[in-house]
Design a protein around this nucleic acid. Structure first.
Lengths: 162, 162
DNA sequence: TAGGTAATTGTTATATTATTACATCAGAAA
DNA sequence: TTTCTGATGTAATAATATAACAATTACCTA
């Protein structure tokens, strides 16, 4: 079986339907395992986020959710986003105030994010070397890590070779 | 001469006046060298930011600036912040929507930020190993770096030993 | 199946963060 | 003096996010 992390969304010919169905399938499975509910709204928001590999703004999601949920309000979106983040199904991109689907929700969730300024796509990388250097650095500083946001902005390989 | 980076703000007995005068001195010097103006407002905002090693919110700065600049408005603060960031004199902490003085403005500006959840102080570290691992990772991904935000949240050594 | 409870969603209002556009002013250069 | 540039004043508004409370739904168990 293909795993989420084996797909590279930057390649223009990637099968995005496969991305989406893998992501939603994994999400459902994880929620089942954890005894939490992937309700209709949460499922819809996750699906909207997965429409592309770009980070999406909350109010853009709201606009896109409204046709499906006539009563949707900001709180509707933010609650769904909170849930999806808690469950590790999406990333909050701090430097963009935006949200992107996580392709590694079943594994190590904290990843390095490579954010392309041109195509706006966000790539996740486990970046083991970076993470271990980070651990070492924190250890030296006597700092106990709770969470990390590692966000790199630049030009992705696909855009720079075009 | 003591350099900014030799001081550790986490040690409760550090001489903060020294931090401030070093920071403001370096800032003035850099602005002179670059032929840009550290105007009264910009100097005041930088001074307010340096009142502590905590990240400060824009509207909190505004409140604290108003006694000094009766006409100050949001744009006043955001313009000063934009300038200070451009000149590398402060960091924007993306994950807090807040701002903190930079102790390495005369050197490599992009640093790892260690943000304590208890005392709220922000420590900067050049973290050479992390940065080189990051470069290597980007290279492998064919990604051209423009800028980085590396923000680690947790408990600082000072707080965890208290 | 009825009743209790916790989780989810609906709804309104508002807080917080940030930008845009245009007017004015101050200082350096022609 | 005129002109240009950068900085600031000012008003309005856009964009992002949360709080508080009511209503509904899902689920457990007696």
């Amino acid at each position: 079986m293909t795993s989420l992390t084996e797909l590279n969304q930057y390649s223009s010919e990637h099968n995005h339907n496969q991305c989406v169905s893998l992501a939603l399938g994994t999400a459902q499975q994880l929620c089942n395992q954890r005894g939490v509910l992937l309700t209709t709204i949460r499922h819809q928001v996750l699906t909207l986020i997965w429409e592309s590999h770009k980070a999406v703004k909350a109010y853009e999601l709201l606009d896109r959710l409204r046709p499906l949920q006539a009563t949707a309000k900001p709180a509707t979106i933010y609650r769904a986003l909170d849930f999806l983040i808690e469950q590790g199904l999406i990333h909050r991109v701090e430097s963009l105030n935006a949200f992107v689907g996580c392709r590694c929700s079943d594994q190590q969730h904290e990843q390095l994010l490579l954010i392309c300024k041109l195509c706006e796509q966000v790539d996740e990388r486990p970046a083991a070397e970076v993470m271990s250097a980070l651990l070492e650095e924190s250890k030296q500083a006597g700092f106990m890590i709770h969470s990390k946001a590692i966000e790199i902005h630049g030009i992705c390989s696909d855009c720079s070779t075009k």
